[in-house]
Design a protein around this nucleic acid. Sequence first.
DNA 1: GTTAGCATGTAAGGAGTTACATGATTTT
DNA 2: AAAATCATGTAACTCCTTACATGCTAAC
Lengths: 202, 202
Amino acid sequence: MAIYRRQVAARTDLLEFASLGVLAAGPLHGYALRKSLTEILGPFRALSYGSLYPCLRRLQDRGWIEQLGAVPGTTTKRARVVYALTGDGKDAFAEWANQPGSDAWDDEGFATRLAFFSRTEASVRLRILEGRRSRLEEQLALMRESMKRGRDRMDTFLLQMQEHGVEGAEREVSWLNSLILAERNLPKVGTSIPPKVKRSKK
Amino acid sequence: MAIYRRQVAARTDLLEFASLGVLAAGPLHGYALRKSLTEILGPFRALSYGSLYPCLRRLQDRGWIEQLGAVPGTTTKRARVVYALTGDGKDAFAEWANQPGSDAWDDEGFATRLAFFSRTEASVRLRILEGRRSRLEEQLALMRESMKRGRDRMDTFLLQMQEHGVEGAEREVSWLNSLILAERNLPKVGTSIPPKVKRSKK
DNA sequence: GTTAGCATGTAAGGAGTTACATGATTTT
DNA sequence: AAAATCATGTAACTCCTTACATGCTAAC
């Protein structure tokens, strides 16, 4: 009779950190947060409320965000629950942004980290970009090998699809190369120079 | 006291149809089927057995595949459960391949259908390609609008990521255009001329 | 006064993964 | 004889969506 011990795989929940990242720019209520997230993570990948609200609940239970109540000065009067990042939440986000795990190299994980790159240290940025590049290069090797092996077993459509996939991955690699180059040529004065951001105020 | 009636959304399980599609080429056991699927759906998106075996069970319960037992002539002697497509399974696959639902336009759904395009009627192929193209064009419009609106609120990294996304989508659109053009210029003699496939035997 | 959009939530279910459990066969 | 790989399966869990339920507010 074995007792099953399960290691909790400590999967970093991307949605949670993305929410923290957005809330770091200022308090928001759920509905507005969702719009922000949708804009960042792509209008294609629309997030549902059935996913968002439980996430906010978890973050609150963990003490990473807190309710502010309705923000005064807005046009509507009540019922909106506004959340703000706490000190702990800020720390948790900073740690996530600067200590990338193995989840940082896949499509979703990489995109999420890139979205908050301005709050990531320059050295870590480089590590993430290079990690993503090697992940893609591994995949490219697998794809090319698979295509070589199966060339005459496969019909033209499958072949064209795979060729398109390879070209897409190659395209991302050269894009990454240009980002990496830009990172390396950045002024070497501190370690965490934020990138140039156009500011409308101040 | 309302009684909740739920419409079962009849989500076409992609893995099930992909499995049928692969088994249509000949009987296989689970382990081998997985390798085939991994090759088709991309070596990146590796499929787990915890997903595959329950799927085979479902297909068998539905009468779309049947167990053959160990194939004689192979080097190994037992324990391998070989599955073959039944007549019903063949019909189910043909119906799926030729009556695309709304799931055919998203990334996974489109890729899966494209993988079995040689068993899809020419007219349906065209419909799928054009449907995918309009889906992408809708997304492009959203992305471009979102980028225009948020241009000076966003930092350079986010902007570069979004530009890269737009370029990727544009690239896929032109790829689709070339596929659509090729489809249209195909010999117009029947309705379901299969594409040229290099054959090693016969 | 009704439609459209803003706003917050819950319950059920879908489609997968990871970790566990087991054993046969092939290669070194 | 050990290690690698082939092979089959289950239980628990994860993260998400859909459908349901509710109500407010702005515009036409």
